[in-house]
């Protein structure tokens, strides 16, 4: 709504949102889609590529390259241990 000022946390400038790098092991994927459905930032989509078993493994969606926050939920949820994230060293400050 125009004219309404939104209150913001005092430490907002100091808080950094972590950034994650996604690592994927294509040959382990069995295409269950858990990582895609349950990613809180909707970072992942199925690739059009197929692995040797014929499954479409996940990749980072176009335009979502900076969205992973390295929460690692995909990593611990993946039944095949086929995906993980690592927090990257953050250079830029949050907008």
């Amino acid at each position: 709504m125009a004219g309404v000022s939104v209150r913001q946390p005092l430490d907002r400038k100091a808080v950094r949102i972590p950034r994650g790098q996604l690592y994927i092991i294509p040959e382990r994927c069995k295409g269950c889609r858990f990582c895609i459905d349950f990613c809180p930032r909707d970072v992942l989509v199925e690739t059009t590529e197929m692995n040797a078993k014929g499954y479409h493994y996940p990749v980072v969606a176009e335009g979502k390259e900076d969205e992973c926050i390295a929460c690692q939920f995909c990593s611990i949820l993946c039944p095949e241990f086929a995906i993980y994230t690592e927090e990257t060293v953050e250079e830029e400050s949050v907008e």
């Binding site: 996604l22 690592y23 092991i25 980072v60 993980y84």
Partner: peptide, 15 residues
């Protein structure tokens, strides 16, 4: 950052 394709997982240490 796009994904990086790898062949191992950190948790592999226990498998």
């Amino acid at each position: 950052m796009p994904e990086i394709l790898v062949e191992a997982h950190p948790i592999d240490a226990v498998f």
